[in-house]
């Protein structure tokens, strides 16, 4: 990519044929087997969250004759303290957990990027106020804050959960985006854009945001893991009432029913934990592919 087209994206189309985003992604992902594994894990869990719950009845059957049953064909991960299939609980519980985490990531990125770019671009008193608020958010321990908020906020829907996780979690990203914006605004092409009299909105959306988008996209994925930990933690502690089972509720019930001292309950407790770690693993493996897809400088090599 020539410097001219990097400076004015969209201003002039490059003369040579440009591969589509899909082709670029495909190439970047298939370059390393670890990335293929990562993206497969993510796709697997996404499909589980979308279609999995439709395979089971709304109220999962309980079976008092099969408490803590070992794995079998009917219950590949055994059963819980009520005789419900653990696999069924994992699958039906994935929708809430993953959709709330995805929403949390979107909100975190939205708030963090907005605060960081505005703060780093306009500087002055805007910057001071935003950074004061950011410091504040970063100092207050996030998890206790969520627990306290659970008394006034209903976490029932994934959107409500995602919004709160976003509102309490944007501090670190805002700081990082601000410092990236600060270094970008001193660069030649931004000064040129300002010299051309382009509006601030144009410079921010067309010049600055595309340049920090790889960083933002990577944080989007990372925030998903943060969102999962936070919501599962809230359910584990039992501070939010729950209507249906999900991974956090499973951990809560397993812990509350003494799974820690019951070796037969091993699978019941380990299954949600394994899912959380698997999702994290998939995301970490996919991250470096993202860097290559979105960062044109890396794509050349």
């Amino acid at each position: 990519m020539s410097t001219a087209s990097a400076a004015f994206p969209g201003a002039a189309s490059p003369p040579h044929h440009r591969p589509s985003l899909l082709t670029i992604s495909w190439r970047a992902i298939t370059r390393k087997p670890s990335r293929v594994i990562g993206i497969t894990i993510i796709l697997f869990f996404t499909l589980m969250a979308i279609f999995g719950p439709t395979l089971y009845p709304k109220q999962l059957p309980i079976n008092p004759a099969e408490l803590y049953a070992p794995p079998s064909w009917a219950h590949p991960l055994g059963t819980d303290f009520e005789g419900t299939s653990v696999l069924a609980e994992i699958i039906t519980g994935s929708r809430y957990v993953l959709s709330a985490a995805a929403l949390a990531a979107v909100f975190t990125i939205g708030f963090g990027t907005l605060a960081g770019v505005v703060s780093g671009y306009f500087l002055g008193s805007t910057d001071q106020i935003i950074m004061r608020v950011t410091d504040f958010i970063l100092t207050i321990p996030g998890f206790p804050l969520l627990i306290v908020l659970s008394t006034v906020w209903s976490f029932g829907s994934p959107i409500a959960m995602g919004l709160v996780l976003g509102l309490t979690g944007w501090g670190g990203l805002a700081r990082a985006v601000r410092s990236q914006t600060l270094s970008l605004r001193e660069r030649g092409f931004i000064e040129a854009a300002r010299g051309l009299g382009l509006s601030n909105a144009h410079i921010i959306t067309r010049e600055i945001l595309p340049n920090i988008s790889p960083y933002i996209a990577m944080n989007l994925l990372l925030s998903v893991t943060g969102g999962i930990y936070a919501e599962v933690g809230l359910f584990f502690l039992g501070v939010i009432p729950f209507q249906a089972s999900n991974w956090g509720v499973m951990l809560n019930l397993a812990f509350g029913n003494g799974a820690l001292y019951t070796p037969q309950a091993l699978l019941y407790m380990l299954s949600p934990m394994a899912c959380i770690l698997l999702v994290t693993f998939g995301i970490v493996l996919t991250l470096d592919a993202f860097d290559e897809i979105l960062n044109p400088r890396l794509r050349e090599g």
Binding site: L260, T262, P263, M273, I276, F281
Partner: peptide
């Protein structure tokens, strides 16, 4: 280190408790 960095506190504490007090 990367592996340990990726494990959340909740899971870590549960695993430690389970491994070293029950298993």
């Amino acid at each position: 280190s990367t592996f340990l960095h990726g494990i959340p506190q909740l899971i870590l504490a549960l695993l430690l408790a389970f491994l070293f007090t029950t298993i």
